[in-house]
């Protein structure tokens, strides 16, 4: 808004017209089209997805770059800051509901559909099936070994919980003006996140090559990979967000009372942490 240019700090910052949104829309159009082509085995698919992805990256860099510029240019008043807080909270709430759909599916198959398939009526269709968990269901033949909870998953739990702690230490460093502390502990958090992801990748290869546990291993495989996979994707996003924060710290951004971006990334990280705890209990432990 022009009031900004004319010196006086505006009551509320309203950005100039921007071409980033439409760029993002183009990216999603190509991504959607490309993904649909790809899953149907058409050659154009991967190319379109690649194109969409590149455009998306450009858009993300451009858009976030603009926001960072505005923030560092101190165009955001307290009220704008509060808007960001509301916005991030509701975004995280929407993510909670997204995971809720998958946890709901897990609850449903374990407590309703699988027992139903082993019930007396179902003997008519599946005479030999006995309900239980984990299961590949009444028809699929390939068996697998379920993922144990006490090996890598437990280690990963400890890693993520620790990373929540290190991130809090980093935040304290930021609010108390100890930027060295901030940088080191933030870096540590990111490394812990990366370790988590490394272990998860290892766990997946282990599942596929030794346990014969696959995405297609009945509802156990479906729910296991869907829940842990989406969680892993969120850890990745969170780690990228933290890395950006580290980069900005190195560049000298943030002050003890003006660093909402950092806090947003931290909120997100803690959210991912809590989801993991649920996963650990419901997916790995209570088998």
């Amino acid at each position: 808004m022009s009031a900004a240019q004319s010196g006086a700090k505006p009551y509320y910052f309203v950005p100039q017209p921007s071409h980033w949104p439409i760029t993002g829309s183009a990216a999603l159009l190509f991504l959607g089209l490309g993904a649909a082509f790809w899953v149907n085995g058409m050659d154009a698919g991967p190319w379109l997805v690649g194109l969409g992805f590149c455009i998306l990256l450009v858009m993300l860099f451009g858009w976030f770059g603009t926001v960072i510029g505005e923030s560092e240019g101190r165009l955001y008043s307290r009220r704008v800051d509060r808007s960001f807080r509301w916005g991030m909270s509701w975004f995280i709430f929407s993510e909670v509901m997204f995971f809720a759909a998958f946890f709901g599916a897990l609850f449903y198959v374990r407590n309703l559909s699988v027992p139903d398939l082993g019930s007396l009526n179902s003997k008519l269709l599946w005479p030999d099936y006995t309900a239980g968990w984990p299961t590949v269901g009444p028809y699929l033949k390939e068996t697998f070994t379920p993922m144990g909870a006490m090996g890598i998953p437990l280690l990963n739990t400890i890693i993520l919980l620790t990373s929540g702690f290190t991130l809090t230490v980093a935040h304290h460093g930021l609010t108390s003006g100890h930027r060295g502390q901030l940088k080191i502990w933030l870096l540590l958090t990111i490394l812990l996140g990366a370790t988590f992801l490394g272990f998860q990748a290892y766990e997946y290869t282990h599942a596929y090559s030794e346990l014969n546990l696959k995405l297609s291993s009945g509802v156990y495989g479906s729910t296991f990979f869907m829940l842990t996979g989406f969680h892993g994707a969120h850890v990745t996003i969170g780690a990228i967000m933290l890395t950006v924060m580290l980069g900005r710290t190195v560049k000298g951004h943030f002050t003890p009372d003006h660093h909402f971006a950092f806090e947003a990334a931290a909120w997100y990280w803690h959210f991912v942490d809590v989801v993991w705890l649920l996963l650990f209990v419901l997916v790995y432990w209570l088998v």
């Binding site: 899953v39 929407s94 993510e95 509901m97 997204f98 809720a100 759909a101 998958f102 599916a105 198959v109 559909s113 699988v114 398939l117 299961t135 590949v136 269901g137 009444p138 028809y139 699929l140 696959k214 995405l215 297609s216 291993s217 009945g218 509802v219 156990y220 495989g221 479906s222 729910t223 990979f225 869907m226």
Partner: peptide, 27 residues
């Protein structure tokens, strides 16, 4: 987001071998 979750499961059932909505695999 719940709708997004539902259609995502539909997508993986269609193309990636999950069995959320298929009794054969316990869904």
């Amino acid at each position: 987001p719940v709708l997004a979750g539902a259609v995502t499961m539909l997508l993986t059932d269609r193309h990636f071998g999950t069995t959320f909505f298929n009794a054969a695999g316990g869904g």
